[in-house]
Design a protein around this nucleic acid. Structure first.
Length: 256
DNA sequence: CGACTTTGACCGGCGC
DNA sequence: GCGCCGGTCAAAGTCG
């Protein structure tokens, strides 16, 4: 179980969202006590070297950046910064990017270059984990949220322990990459993040007598290949999907 | 009443 | 030195 602290403490981002903004006044009637912080909590904005590589994963687009964070002794510690774009429902006002990890929201700010508020999250799964996440809607497309991950998790992925349903990847990625099939029976999960496609069967409690045989068939490379091919056919045959894909590619091309 | 979110204040970097 | 701005803190508010 997770220990909850308050103030600068640990809580968690609920798997189904953090809830809608409330009409909170938050006005303190009394003069606020002095809010002091240690200098080392302000270390994330420093950088002295950056490496960038790009990749596109499914509907999410991840941009990897290695940032050298200066240490007190003058040396630089390389931290990973990854930017992930995820398409969500434009009417969904919650800045939630479901990646399987547990996050504590510690701040929200409206920045100058974007009218949408930027939410700040810290990894709440492990108190010692210093990974941070910034989530903000894209200024150009409100249906796209950009999640920026800083640092790397120093603990196993919570989903690996079966805590949350997720489509997350190691390192805090957020891409739809698993499919669950559940027709009133055991849940069959095809995990596309694993090499060759990992298939996991979660017994819902009442497995049919021949389920083991079915599971073997589902887990077979032939079945997985056929499934992927069928999915590809379905997607490429969907005019809306191809149009959206073409539009997304065009947006990424420089204007000529 | 505990769990969790909201939000104004505060801090420090940076540009001028 | 000053003001702007992004990032963070933490008290207060809200919910179940």
């Amino acid at each position: 179980m997770i220990a909850y602290l308050y103030g600068n403490q640990v809580s968690r981002q609920s798997p189904d969202g953090e809830g809608q903004p409330r009409a909170s006044t938050a006005a303190s009637p009394t003069p606020p006590a002095s809010k002091k912080r240690s200098r080392d909590s302000m270390d994330t904005s420093h950088s002295c070297d950056v490496e960038i590589s790009n990749r596109n994963v499914g509907t999410g687009e991840a941009e990897h950046v290695d940032v050298d964070s200066p240490l007190s002794n003058g040396t630089c510690r390389r931290i990973k910064v990854k930017k992930v774009c995820t398409r969500i429902d434009p009417s969904d006002t919650s800045l939630v990017v479901k990646d399987g990890y547990q996050w504590r929201k510690y701040g929200q700010k409206v920045t100058r270059d974007n009218p949408s508020p930027r939410a700040y999250f810290r990894c709440a799964f492990a108190p010692s984990c210093r990974v941070k996440k910034k989530v903000q809607r894209s200024a150009e497309d409100s249906s796209v949220v950009e999640a920026t991950y800083e640092g790397e998790h120093n603990h196993p992925h919570p989903t690996r322990a079966g805590e949350l349903p997720s489509c997350a990847t190691q390192g805090g990625g957020s891409v739809p990459c698993s499919i669950s099939i559940n027709s009133s029976g055991p849940t069959i999960t095809l995990d596309l993040t694993k090499n060759g496609g990992g298939v996991q069967v979660v017994d819902a409690g009442e497995a049919q007598p021949d389920m083991k045989k079915v599971c073997r068939e589902v887990a077979s490379p032939e079945f997985q290949r056929a499934l992927v091919e069928q999915m590809a056919r379905e997607l490429t045959g969907d005019q809306k999907f191809t149009d959206a894909l073409a539009a997304a590619i065009l947006r990424k091309l420089p204007d000529y």
